[in-house]
């Protein structure tokens, strides 16, 4: 009986040792991973909002993702209602599962080079349902470029420029370093929020804090 009790205590002791070792190992690794996550400089053409705004948001998005469109429309409305509250920076994170993810980012980056990024961005998200299921969405992108009064000849040259892909992939690599796996992912004053619902919760909390 004593031997049985002693073996049971040994098992419980071993359990605690395993639990403590696991917790220390995971928390240590997590700390290491977080310290390795660094952010790059902003690209001015893809930034909007008051420079002194108390809320800084960095957004990683894929233009073909429906949740990104919903998040972008919400953010746009929020920025209209609270014009001095938010400074938003947008980064590309095209997902391989989206056929037009990369292509739409290329057009957006070319719009950025003509100083029309946000206008084109808004067209892409507002009209997403019209182009996301197309086999070839390029005519739809071209139409949006014309609506945004972009120089289409310059746009065609830009689309052939390989450095466009490099810009997009650099953003995506930065997102991966920051542990972005889904879109839309936001960094609100440095804190992660994934999806519109988490963003809403964070922004509401920040607004309430600022009112206190």
């Amino acid at each position: 009986m004593t031997s049985k009790n002693s073996q049971f205590s040994n098992k419980v002791m071993t359990t605690w040792v395993i639990v403590v070792v696991c917790v220390i190992a995971v928390l240590g690794s997590k700390q290491f991973c977080e310290s390795a996550r660094t952010r790059s400089q902003s690209v001015e053409s893809r930034v909007k909002g008051d420079e002194g705004a108390p809320v800084r948001i960095m957004e990683f998005m894929d233009f073909q993702c429906p949740a990104c469109a919903s998040g972008a429309l919400y953010l746009k409305q929020f920025m209209v209602e609270h014009p001095r509250a938010v400074r938003l920076e947008m980064k590309y994170f095209p997902l391989p599962m989206h056929r037009h993810g990369m292509e739409s980012a290329r057009y957006a980056e070319c719009a950025s080079r003509q100083g029309k990024f946000w206008l084109f961005h808004d067209y892409l998200v507002e009209r997403q349902t019209q182009w996301k299921d197309l086999i070839d969405a390029r005519p739809a992108f071209m139409l949006m470029a014309r609506d945004a009064a972009m120089d289409t000849k310059q746009l065609e040259v830009c689309l052939r420029d390989k450095s466009i892909d490099a810009v997009i992939l650099k953003d995506k690599a930065e997102g991966k370093k920051l542990a972005v796996t889904s879109t839309p992912s936001y960094f609100v004053n440095g804190e992660t929020a994934v999806g519109k619902s988490q963003l809403e919760t964070k922004l509401k909390a920040l607004l309430n804090d600022s009112k206190k």
Binding site: V26, S29, C33, T181, S185, T192, A193, V194, Q198
Partner: peptide, 18 residues
């Protein structure tokens, strides 16, 4: 478990919310 623990918990929260 490790994959979720090493990433920000908000990533998995988004999956659960979905």
């Amino acid at each position: 478990g490790l994959e979720k623990l090493l990433a920000p918990y908000q990533n998995f929260l988004y999956v659960i919310q979905s």
